[in-house]
Design a protein around this nucleic acid. Sequence first.
DNA 1: CGTGAATTTGAGAGCCATCAATCTAAGTGG
DNA 2: CCACTTAGATTGATGGCTCTCAAATTCACG
Lengths: 250, 250
Amino acid sequence: MLTENVLRNRANELSDEERRILEAAVSSTRTYRPGEVVVRQGVAVDISTLLVSGLMTRHVDAADGRRHLVAVHVPGDFVDLHAYALKRLDHDVGALTDITVAVVPHAALEEIQVQHPPLTRRLWFMTLLDAAMHRHWVLRLASLNALQRVAHFLCEMNARLTAIGLSDGNRFALNMTQADIGEVCGLTNVHVNRVLRQLREMGLCSLRAAQLVVHDPRGLAAAGLFEADYLYLNDQTALRAAGQSGAGHG
Amino acid sequence: MLTENVLRNRANELSDEERRILEAAVSSTRTYRPGEVVVRQGVAVDISTLLVSGLMTRHVDAADGRRHLVAVHVPGDFVDLHAYALKRLDHDVGALTDITVAVVPHAALEEIQVQHPPLTRRLWFMTLLDAAMHRHWVLRLASLNALQRVAHFLCEMNARLTAIGLSDGNRFALNMTQADIGEVCGLTNVHVNRVLRQLREMGLCSLRAAQLVVHDPRGLAAAGLFEADYLYLNDQTALRAAGQSGAGHG
DNA sequence: CGTGAATTTGAGAGCCATCAATCTAAGTGG
DNA sequence: CCACTTAGATTGATGGCTCTCAAATTCACG
C-alpha cells in the first residue's frame, strides 16, 4: 500500500477500488539520490512514475550550463503520466531530494483506459492539474517581483504539502537550497537570500535547516498574491494553510 | 467539416474516422469579438470549445487591472478540453481576435471516452501539449531576456501556424498588439516596441500591419534559443519554419 | 577539526519599467 | 472630403529592481 496516503486528500480523490487498481498496476518501486535524472529528455519511455516520497523536478538545462526548474512535484503526483500519451519528454525529470517512486508500465495504463473510464478520467484530471500549476508559474514569473514570487512559491508548496499531510500548515520540510528556489522563481541565489531575509524581517516566514516555518500564513499569501484555487484542493486544512478562507469556490 | 483542416498536420494526427466522430460531437458553433470572454474563471461548464478560426487567450486579470496571458491558442486547439475533467477553470478564456469556435458538450465527450479509447488517448495527448507549451513559457520567462523572449514567442507562433497551414514559414498574420505581446512575454508595450525594432534592425523579422515577416527563420530561432521539440510537431515544413533541421528528435 | 557546500553581505552595473510626449493609422460624423 | 477621435506605435529621460562579481561566514558531514 505504498501509495495509500499520497493518493488521498485531493479534490479528485480516488475511491478505494480505484486505488486498488492503481496499486495493482505498479510493477516495482525505485529510489534515487538527489540530482539523479529519472527520465531524460527525448528518450522514449514505456513506463510512468508515481512519486511516493521526496521531491522531484522537471527541469531544462540551458546552453550556458544553468538549470531552470519548470515544475516541482510532491508525493502523490503521478509525475510522469504524461509519458503515457507523449512517449518522449521535452525536458528532464529528476530527483530534488532522496526519493522513492512507483513504476507503472504503460501496458497497465492501457488496460485501465479500456476497462475503467472513470479512473481514466481521474488520471486525466491529474495531468490537467499540472497544466494548471504551470499556468500559475507563468503568471508568477510574468507579473510578480522577486519577493512576491518567492512568497507565492512557498505558499504553493505549503498548500500542496498540507493536502497530503506533509505540512501542518505552519511548518514543513523543504529540502531545497536557495539556489533551487532561485531556479524556480527565475532569480539568482543571491537575490533569493535577500528576499528570504526580507520575508523573515516582515514576520511572515523563515527557512532554516531545510524547515520552513510560516509565522503568518495569510500575510505570506497576501505578500505573494497567492490564491489556492488553481490547485483544485478540497481539503479545508490545506486551504486554511494557504491563507484562504476555505469557504469554497462559489 | 468545420474542423477538417485544423485537425490535420499534427504529430498526433487523427484518422478520418476519429475526425468524423469529433465532428459529430460538435453541437453548434459560435463567434466572438476581440476581447470577449468565452469561459469565465470559476464558472462551472458542461461544454468544451474547439477553436476553428482566430486566436484565443488564457489570461488572468491582476488586482491592479493589468492582464497577463498564460497561453495563446491557434485554430485546431481544443481550447477548453480541460473543462471536461476540471469542470471549472482557474482563469479566463477569451477571444484575442475575431474567432469561431465549435461547441462540444461534455456528454458527447463522455460517450467518446467510453466507446473510443484510442481517440480519448489522442484527446488526452492534446491537453498534454498545452502543458508542454506552458512549461516552455515558464522557461522563457525564467531564463530569457526581453529580446530572446519575443523572438522565442514569434518562433513558436510561426511553427504552430505553419503546422496548420496559416503560415508559409516566412510570413503570417499576427493580430496581436505590441501590448498583447508584452502580456505574453512579461514586458511592457514600450519595451516590446524597442525589442521589435532591434529584431528588425538585426534583419530577423518585422511586424507591420498585423503581418509578421520572418526574414531569417534560423537567425530568429537562434536569437530566441528556440527549439521546436516541445510542440511535438511532425510536419517537416513547420520544423523548417521553426529554424530546425527537421531531421527528427533522436 | 577539516573540507566543501550553502548562506550571507556588499558594491557596482545593466536591463527593463515608468512616465511623458509625439506620431501614425484607422474609423466616425458632419 | 475633412475635422475629430481613438487606439496603437514610437521615441526619450529617468529610476529601480535584480544581476554580476567578490568575499566572508556559517553549516553539514566525515
